[in-house]
Amino acid sequence: MNIKVLFFASCRDLIGSSEREMTLPDGATVTDLISRLASEQARFTDMAPSLMVSINQAYAERDAELQDGDEVAFIPPVSGG
């Protein structure tokens, strides 16, 4: 399946881009996506525990299964206001 992954703020700086198209095996979860990114960028492993994840603009848990066409975002602790 193909998904769109968005990165913001400190996470975008670490990954080096704001948006990526990624291909994952069917049945992959948020945790699988995190493992894939960590394998490419080791420091993502350190950052991941502090990140929230959203799927199609709703906060999601780590065990949530991804679907083809999903928009997934990594959300550092928010600091609006």
Binding site: F8, A9, S10, S50, M52, P76, V78, S79, G80, G81
Partner: peptide, 20 residues
């Protein structure tokens, strides 16, 4: 999901993170 980056007068800058 909104983030603030502070740019200080001493030249430093950082994304501010809220309380997780």
């Amino acid at each position: 999901p909104i983030w603030k980056k502070e740019v200080w007068t001493d030249g430093g800058e950082a994304w501010i993170e809220g309380d997780p």
